[in-house]
Amino acid sequence: MLELYGQNLSSRLLLGTALYPSPAIMAEAIKASGTEIVTVSLRRETSGGKAGGQFWSLVQSLGVRVLPNTAGCHSVSEAITTARMAREVFGTDWIKLEVIGNHDTLQPDVFGLVEAARILASEGFDVFPYTTDDLVVAERLLDAGCRVLMPWCAPIGSARGPQNTGALRSLRGYFPGIPLIVDAGIGRPSHAAAVMELGYDAVLLNTAVAKAGDPVTIAAAFGKAVEAGHEAYRAGLIEPRDMAVPSTPVIGMAAFS
């Protein structure tokens, strides 16, 4: 059972709500994936008007927990303002904190991220920081009050899959008790299974599902891959060897020549 800020969850897949062909397909994909947490963006989906109106109502009707994010924020103050608005609009202390440092790569500004995390944690937010795979930044985020870490495995939307498994392993090794969620860069179910096999607690996806040929089918596929990777990690994987080892015992067999 996965526990995030005191909430127990049986699904280890989190889904974003942007970029789907239609809200109806998004809703079907969310159901098919089995996810219990969806991220929503305050900036684009709900700015002005009636707080997202029907789109927000549809998300609410799915009966999943909502994790608002500060997507598109480029400064600490912008991220904090967005987080406070999100708390009002969505009625939750959960916030996925993004402070973007580079417009092209959407790489997090880790200095601003730590600063914003500290302020938000002190205001009682449960912060889910979108960070790089840097170990020292991870330590600073935990010092700042985060109880969950969300490192990328590749740039947002790039679909490249895990780029630096060494760094991801290192994070897992250093923070055995902290929920680690791979946030960005997953392109296919095998990527999701691979990071789960490293012992990660969950995976967050959006583009890989929303922009796939059939979002509903691939959402189900991702749900299975995440589960398979997690089960594999729990079971204990064998280590690769340089030489072949027969799987059928040969000692004691009759030898013919």
């Binding site: 809200p23 684009r44 989906e45 709900t46 002005g48 008007g49 997202g52 029907q54 789109f55």
Partner: peptide
């Protein structure tokens, strides 16, 4: 394409 009905 913004999920919002504001016409401002």
């Amino acid at each position: 394409m913004i999920e919002c009905d504001a016409a401002g």
